[in-house]
Structure formats: C-alpha cells, structure tokens
C-alpha cells in the first residue's frame, strides 16, 4: 500500500511538471489561432512580408551550415589522422573559443563588418557565425574521426592515393553521421542568433526572423494573435527539423556532453 501511495504522488508530480512545461507552448498555439484563425498566418505572410525575413534567415543559415562543414571536417581529419608540430596546443586554443560570449567580441566585429562594407549583407552574418559555430563542430567531428581506423589512410597511401584523395574518397563519406549532427546544431545556432543579426541587418528587407518581430510588436500592438502566428511561423523550420531528426539530436547531445 505504501508503494502505491508513492507512485500516485510521483505520477501526479510528473503530470504537473509536464503541464507547466507545455502551458506556454499551448498558449502560443492557442493565441495564434484566436480571432481570425488561420487568417492570422495568412496575414503574417502577406501583410508584413514575413516571407522575406524567413528567406533571409534561410540563406544565412544554409550558407553557414555548408561553410562550417567545409572548414571543420578537413580540420577534424588533420587533427585526428596527421601528425604535425603544435597540434595539441592549436586544438586547445580552438577549444577555448567555445566559451567566448559573442557579445564580448561585438565591438571589433562591428568594425570589421563596417570596414568590409558588409552592413546589410548576408556575409556580415555568415562569416562571424561560421567562426563562432565551427569550433563546436570541430570537437564533434574530431571525436568521430578518432573512432575511424588510421589503417584506412595507410592502406590508401600504399595503394597510391594521396592524403587529399584519402580524405575526400574515404574519410569524408564515412563521416556522414557526424555531418548530420553538426548540420542540425549549426542550423539551430544560426537560425536563433540574435545579437549580430540585430547589429548588422538594419535595412528592413534584410532583417532576420530573430529581430523582425521587434517591428511587429509595434505593428501588432493590438493584434497579439497576429504576432503569435508570425512567431509560430518563425519557429516552424526548427520544429520540422527537430521532428525529422530527433534521433540525430539525441546522438548529438550525448556526443557533445561527453566530448566537452
């Protein structure tokens, strides 16, 4: 009987906790459908041109993901399979950057972006995002490369391949699982970034989804359901990716937590 009591208590605590966690999500969806129902979504896309901002975020995010993979995968291969002097210290320095808050380098990055004339240009976000997000990708990818046997490289070299061919034809294709994990995490990091998006994308037509609702908040002062429909739309690509790649997410979380 005593066990039964504990179980009831445990289950009701679990239900209350899940209820509290789901309440804000439910509130978001429910509010977004008030008044005009799906008309709110239609308005968000047509009246306030949310589509343009989603395209901007999409371009920046996809470019960042591709660039992060392009710079981190070869580096992970070299750190894992090639011996060179200064390797460990170089890796440690790259690791340090995992903890650097974006805000602490914002002033100089503003100067660099201004100097290059990149204000209101996608490159102003793609390049800093790549720098900020690639160290974590490197950690994940190196962990994966370390598990691939070095004999693959040795036998490829014996067979007359050079190191570059060995990387492109053997190791890069084998790294597909970790590339998926990196894609998901880089996508999240880039789509959700706020500070640089706010500093560099001033022109309305160039703004990202993370900053545009500040304008909506003014426009939608009396139309909260309209604002909330826009918010759901902003979140939709992430939710789709999360649902499609739930397993990848879990693997990434485990790998990330163990490696760091």
């Amino acid at each position: 009987m005593k066990n039964r009591g504990i179980e009831v208590l445990r289950n009701s605590l679990l239900l209350v906790t899940v209820g509290l966690f789901s309440l804000p999500l439910y509130y978001l969806l429910q509010t977004s459908l008030q008044n005009k129902g799906f008309g709110n979504y239609y308005n968000a896309l047509t009246k306030i041109n949310l589509g343009q901002n989603m395209i901007n975020s999409g371009i920046v995010t996809v470019s960042t993901v591709l660039l992060v993979i392009a710079v981190a995968l070869p580096a992970a291969f070299a750190f894992s399979k090639i011996t060179f002097s200064g390797k460990n210290i170089l890796f440690l320095i790259l690791l340090m950057s995992l903890a650097i808050p974006g805000i602490s380098i914002a002033v100089p990055v503003v100067q660099i972006v201004k100097g290059l004339g990149w204000t209101n240009n996608y490159l102003a976000l793609i390049f800093p995002y790549t720098a900020l997000l690639s160290p974590f990708a490197l950690v994940l990818m190196r962990g994966f490369m370390d598990q691939l046997p070095k004999e693959l490289l040795e036998s490829a070299l014996v067979d007359g391949c050079n190191v570059y061919q060995a990387f492109f034809r053997i190791y890069a294709p084998l790294a597909k699982p970790v590339v998926m994990i990196v894609t998901v995490f880089t996508f999240l990091g880039s789509w959700n970034e706020f500070l640089f998006a706010k500093l560099f994308m001033r022109k309305e037509s160039m703004q990202m989804v993370t900053t545009i609702p500040i304008k909506f908040q003014v426009n939608f002062y009396t139309d909260i359901p309209g604002l909330f429909a826009a918010l759901v739309l902003i979140q939709l690509p992430l939710l789709i990716i999360y649902i499609l790649f739930q397993r990848v997410f879990k693997e990434g979380l485990t790998a990330g937590a163990v490696k760091s």
């Binding site: 959700n192 706020f194 993370t210 609702p213 909330f228 992430l238």
Partner: peptide
Amino acid sequence: TAIVVSNI
C-alpha cells in the same frame, strides 16, 4: 528562438 520565448 529567444524572441518567441520572450513574447510568449
């Protein structure tokens, strides 16, 4: 996204 959470 932070902007969504903050609005909610």
